[in-house]
Design a protein around this nucleic acid. Structure first.
Lengths: 233, 233
DNA sequence: CGGCTTCTTGAAGATATTCAAACCCAGTGG
DNA sequence: CCACTGGGTTTGAATATCTTCAAGAAGCCG
C-alpha cells in the first residue's frame, strides 16, 4: 500500500524569488543577494493523496516546504498499528531533523493532493551559515513544530473521545465551517482511539446536527456546538 | 500553593567558560573569543522542589539551562486540572520560545531540587547573530524538544494505563534500576489518567514485584518486567 | 457485476472514571 | 509527648466509557 517516491512527479525547478506564498515559507526574509547562495535546485513536486513523501529511518538529503494540501507524520509500531504525530499544512516544513544530521523520524504521507518544494539540505545549511535572515525563519519553524506538538497533546489527546473529535473538527475546519475530513483509521490514529469509536462519535455528531455531511467525507460544521462539546467539563 | 520567583535564590554569576556540564549545554561549541560577546550576566539559581521557574503567558526575558534536577512543563485548563507536556532534565533548555518573541507557553515547575542557569535573551540573540557555533546547538536543542514531544505522545499517551506507567518508570529510571518517582497527581497529568488509576497500577506493580518501594517514593525497578509490560500487544 | 476496502452498527467484555471513605504521615500546637 | 490536622495516597463499589469481536452496508475499481 505504501509506496516510495516513484510515483511523485517532479514538476520544475522552483522560482523561490517569486514564490506565491513566500511570506509563509522558510525563505520569507531572504533578500536578493541571498538567492545567489542557492546553488542547488529547489524543486516543486505534486503528491497524490496516499503518496509517501519519505519514510522514517531513511537518511534524508532534503527538507520540504508544504505549499498546499495536507501531510501526516506517522510512526508505525512493531505490531503494525500507526500513530499520527502531527499534521502539516501550507507553510509547514517537513524533515527538519536532517539539519541536525538525523535520519527522518517519521513517515510523511500525503492525505490530500499536496504540493511541496524539495530543498536540499546543503542549501539550508549554507544559507543558515551565511545569512542571519534565515535563522529567524528556521527558529520560527522549529518553534511552530514544538508548539503544534504541545497543542496536539493537550487538544487531541486529552478528554473523552467526543471532545477530542470535536477539537479535531475545529482544527480542520475552514473559516466558513467546511471541513474535508479524514479516513476513520487516520482519525483514530490521531485521537488515540479505535476506528469504531470514531465512527460512533461521528454518527452521534451527525444525528445531533453538530456536523452534517455535504459530500464524500465533506462536512459542514456548527462551530458553536463543537466548541460546546470541546470545552465541556 | 504555586509561588513566584520570590523563593528562588540567585547564587552567583556563572562561569560559563568552566561549566562542569559544558558539553551538554547551549554554549557547548563556543570558543574563547565568543565568550567576550556575553555582555550580560548568566546566573545560577537553585529551585526548591515545588518552586515555579516561570508561568505561562508571562513575557520572558530569559531562557534557562537545567543543570541538575527535574522540571515539569505544565498547562493548566480552565477547570483547574493540569496536563504535563514535558519533563526537562540535565542539559535541557526551558523557555526557548522567548527567542521568537513569544511569551512563555508553559508554567515551569521544579519537581526536585533543581539547579539552573538563567541566560538573558539578548545574550543568546547576540551570540546567535555573531557566531555560527551557537546555531548548531540551538538547532540541536529545538530538535531535542520536538523529538521529546513526539516520544512523549507515542510512549506515554498510547496504550493502557499499565503500559504507560511502565514506560514512565523506564523513562525515569537510572542505569541501575533506581527511580525517584513523582507524586500521583503529576503522574496522572503525564499519562492522562486519574490519580486513582495511577495508584492502582502502581500497587499492582508492587504486588507483582515489578517495582519495589525502597524509600519515600523511591523505587527499585525490574527493567525486564517493565519492558515486558510496555511492549505487550 | 463481483471483489475489495472502508465504514457502520450491535452486543459483550474490559478498562478507566467517579465518588466516597479510610489511611498514612509529617508538621503543629497544646 | 501526644492528639490533631491537612495533604497526598490508597482502596472499594458503582458507573461510564472505550475496546473487542463479529457481521452487515456502502462505496469504489477493475
Amino acid at each position: 500500500m505504501r509506496r516510495g517516491e516513484a510515483e511523485t512527479s517532479w514538476l520544475k525547478r522552483a522560482e523561490c524569488r517569486n514564490c506565491g506564498i513566500r511570506d509563509l515559507v522558510l525563505f520569507a526574509d531572504l533578500r536578493e543577494p541571498d538567492f545567489e547562495l542557492i546553488h542547488l535546485p529547489v524543486e516543486e513536486q505534486v503528491l497524490a493523496a496516499g503518496a509517501t513523501l519519505y519514510e522514517a529511518g531513511r537518511d534524508g538529503r532534503a527538507l520540504f516546504t508544504i505549499r498546499g494540501g495536507l501531510v501526516k507524520f506517522v510512526r508505525y509500531f512493531p505490531d503494525g498499528t500507526q500513530r499520527i504525530v502531527r499534521l502539516l499544512r501550507t507553510g509547514a516544513v517537513a524533515g527538519m531533523e536532517v539539519l541536525v544530521g538525523q535520519p527522518y523520524e517519521h513517515t510523511a504521507v500525503a492525505l490530500q493532493t499536496t504540493l511541496i518544494c524539495r530543498i536540499p539540505r546543503e542549501v539550508v545549511d549554507r544559507l543558515a551559515r551565511e545569512t542571519p535572515r534565515l535563522h529567524r525563519q528556521l527558529m520560527g519553524k522549529w518553534h511552530a513544530a514544538v508548539h503544534q506538538a504541545d497543542e496536539w497533546l493537550t487538544a487531541l489527546n486529552t478528554g473523552s473521545a467526543r471532545q477530542r473529535l470535536a477539537r479535531l473538527f475545529l482544527h480542520l475546519m475552514t473559516e466558513d465551517g467546511q471541513c474535508e475530513f479524514l479516513g476513520r483509521e487516520d482519525v483514530g490514529a490521531i485521537l488515540s482511539v479505535t476506528t469504531e469509536t470514531v465512527c460512533r462519535a461521528v454518527a452521534d455528531f451527525k444525528r445531533a446536527g453538530t456536523v452534517s455531511e455535504t459530500g464524500n467525507n465533506l462536512f459542514s460544521c456548527d462551530r458553536a456546538a463543537l466548541e460546546e462539546i470541546a470545552d465541556a467539563v
